[in-house]
Amino acid sequence: MGADILIIDDDRDLVNTIRIILESRDYGVRAAHNGEEGYAAITEKIPDLIILDVMMSTDTDGFDLAYKLKNSPHHRDIPILMLSSFPQKMAEKGPESFQHILGEGWPVTEFHEKPIDPDELLDAVEDILRDEGRT
């Protein structure tokens, strides 16, 4: 069994899709459908990578969780791959401002736009896990 990856997204079809993609490479996949469930899953067992949606039960649920994790000494090292259907180019001011998402102070490791290209996702996951030394 490969690395333990936690998917947090309220779109169950997407969760399933990602699950199928990841399981094709033998990653261990867990899923949660909002920030709260996600946090519970993280405290239960720290995953090697989190794939996190932005807008779930609230518009900023994903970011709220990401910041919460960054502020917790136990969790700040977990890499986060963030997904959003809000195209980066169109980002406006406010919490959904993704323009500087990978800059300093941002709680996520990488940012991807939906829809998900299976090959790209797998490459990204592999890269992150390798960089973090978790494979």
């Binding site: 779109d11 899709t17 259907s85 829809p115 299976p118």
Partner: peptide
């Protein structure tokens, strides 16, 4: 509107 499109596109890619 975009969420379901994204999901369907992702599934088609799958």
């Amino acid at each position: 509107l975009r969420s379901p499109i994204g999901a369907v596109q992702s599934m088609l890619d799958l």
